[in-house]
Design a protein around this nucleic acid. Structure first.
Lengths: 359, 359
DNA sequence: AGCCTCGCCTAAACCGGTTTAGTCCTGAGA
DNA sequence: TCTCAGGACTAAACCGGTTTAGGCGAGGCT
């Protein structure tokens, strides 16, 4: 029992087997460079000693970790709490695994994303919901780590994956306008606690611009008094609608920037005695799994979250594979959104129970 | 533009700054060992060169990666698709992050978990749903990597976190028996494609044993003809119930081993013209988020998935911190489950529309 | 016999840092 | 004036592997 050593090293195996370190290395990596008998002997000794090549040491010489980092602007606990992130992760995992890569999640360590990135042993990074001018991004770029931006700024110049948030929002707004609604309340995502799945500055701005475009196309206006904010959770969506109601707003339709908010609005409306969609139409955003199962099934803007993950991983792998080919533009992918009409929206009630204009 | 070098090394900075490698290292790690002016000069040069200490090299000398590995028996794409896994990950992340650790997900690389583990640069591993006799576990133990088993075999001897599956299942079965049901169909989780969240051999066995115990406590029997299997998804739960129905079974209650299956059963029952819970009571397992939102809200067995993650992480951190204190038993944690009665179960209809006994 | 090739294996350099064990110099105390 | 402490910095060893460049002996060919 020579259990003094915490762990067997390659030198131990070499000594024990009476060969050189090189031979041991060969036995594990390129056994064909050794006589079959030698190789099996070495492996036997290694097994006996419980030897396993030290992964970190191996990385150091091979200069690749076969790991891709997923950079999240918030703590992982928050990120994992968001169902749409699971879809995104699923997409990344799908293509990363196929290429033999593993996933390493990087979140702000003691507040600093930069510090976390500096310590991360990854070959490349997929950054979620970071605007292009975010200070950490500069550092990552400077260090030469391949990077793909998701739901950030497209102008940033690097590889990026984006979703047509504006188009989706426009379709959602057009839908309720087509149904005759004029008293419309927008529940935006609140910035600071911005839930993941990539809801960050750019995303919110784009969606709002989309809503607005639909209104303007009809010569209507979407004033600040028609916009409230909530964090992307059921509970906070509920709160937001209740407060809007309490302050006298009587919308016939709600455009919510996330499904969770939308479901909160539905709950709040019911508790206030409004039926959905008879008295109030509600449109969500994202089209998470539960949107279809919810009661009533939610009309919402579908965004291909899994595909977003896949695409990001593909882009990163491209960057990893190729030389940093000069002059060639980094690819920027933009994915489409589409409105999915279910049962939470209906034509505005012709006989209005609500007074004309108090919104 | 000396862009020949892919990346600045410590030696480059040292040369450029006219100091030794040691000084550069000090400037980054223990600046107080240097004159303030020297330290800032070195950092300036480093910045200019875009130098960032190579994380892998640093790991090698420090012998810790500050990363914990999460070992999943299936591909990550499959794992992430399971909503309950997100809860589990959330729990792990919560305590791991608080302790400054990052998360690295390890899935079977080209089929071999062992190979994946061998390459993983982690300080310890949380293994999900692996039975104690799984061959990879032996390797991990042999290599001296701290390990926590979740939803595996408790007899295995190492640190482990378990959930009282049997107790929860017993409570579920007792509930439907108390409601007067006697024609009960169990929809178990199918082994091969066993969805994650830790549904593996041990879990299925324990749950089944729990159902059975409740029946036996009443002198009733739960024969193999009352048990069918499905993968843990809505679609497959639907299929399973339809097939059971087609083969002539007419249960008044269904005990499903997962919420997803339960929801599939509900859908199938509706399509067959049965109302839930009037004609058919359904009990799920896990109590995922959507169980509460579903229509009807699902009666199910709650298991503290997030707490399971937290506990696993805590156990691992303990193992990481302490010396491998001899003789001391590894801790084994067991968490409670509890039945949550919602609206998918009801007293059995007194006037039976279904023929007496065809199950 | 002499030369080459080839199979099998090894010594030493290297990956990019950290750490140990000093060296050198300056200023205070005796 | 000499000694000694301690501040500032460095050379070399080390972490644990992989890779390069080659050594050595046996057999084939001429």
């Amino acid at each position: 029992m020579q259990r003094r050593l915490q762990r067997a090293r390659i030198a131990d195996v070499a000594r024990e087997a009476g060969v050189s370190k090189t031979a041991v290395s060969f036995a594990f990596n390129t056994p064909d460079r050794l006589a079959a008998s030698t190789a099996s002997h070495i492996r036997a000794v290694a097994d006996e000693l419980g030897y396993r090549p030290h992964p970190v040491a191996r990385m150091l010489t091979q200069r690749r970790t076969m790991t891709i980092g997923v950079l999240t602007p918030q703590s992982l606990a928050v990120v994992f709490a968001n169902p749409s992130f699971a879809r995104f992760g699923e997409g990344i995992a799908e293509v990363a695994e196929a290429a033999g890569y593993e996933l390493h999640f990087i979140s702000p360590r003691s507040g600093s994303l930069a510090a976390a990135v500096a310590r991360a042993t990854v070959d490349g990074v997929i950054a979620l919901g970071l605007t292009g001018d975010h200070p950490e991004l500069g550092q990552i770029r400077a260090s030469g780590l391949p990077l793909v931006l998701v739901d950030g700024d497209h102008d940033a110049g690097g590889a990026s994956v984006q979703v047509d948030d504006a188009g989706g929002a426009r379709a959602a707004a057009k839908h309720v306008l087509d149904l005759g609604h004029r008293e419309v309340l927008v529940v935006a995502i609140e910035r600071p606690e911005a839930s993941l799945g990539g809801q960050q500055g750019a995303v919110i701005t784009n969606r709002l611009a989309g809503y607005r475009a639909a209104f303007e196309a009809r010569g209507l206006d979407l004033g600040p008094e028609s916009i409230v904010s909530a964090r992307a959770s059921i509970a906070d969506g509920k709160r937001a609608f209740r407060e809007a109601w309490a302050s006298g707003r009587r919308p016939t339709a709600v455009l919510a920037m996330s499904d969770a908010i939308a479901m909160g609005v539905v709950e709040a409306a019911r508790e206030l005695g409004r039926r959905v969609p008879a008295d109030l139409s509600v449109v969500g955003f994202d089209d998470v799994d539960i949107a279809e199962i919810a009661d009533p099934p939610l009309t919402t803007v579908h965004q291909p979250i899994r595909e977003k993950g896949r695409e990001a991983a593909r882009l990163l792998l491209e960057g990893l594979a190729g030389e940093p080919r000069r002059g060639e533009h980094a690819r920027q992918v933009r994915l489409a959104t589409r409105l999915v009409v279910r049962s939470s929206t209906a034509r505005v009630a012709t006989a209005r129970a609500t007074p004309p204009r108090r919104v």
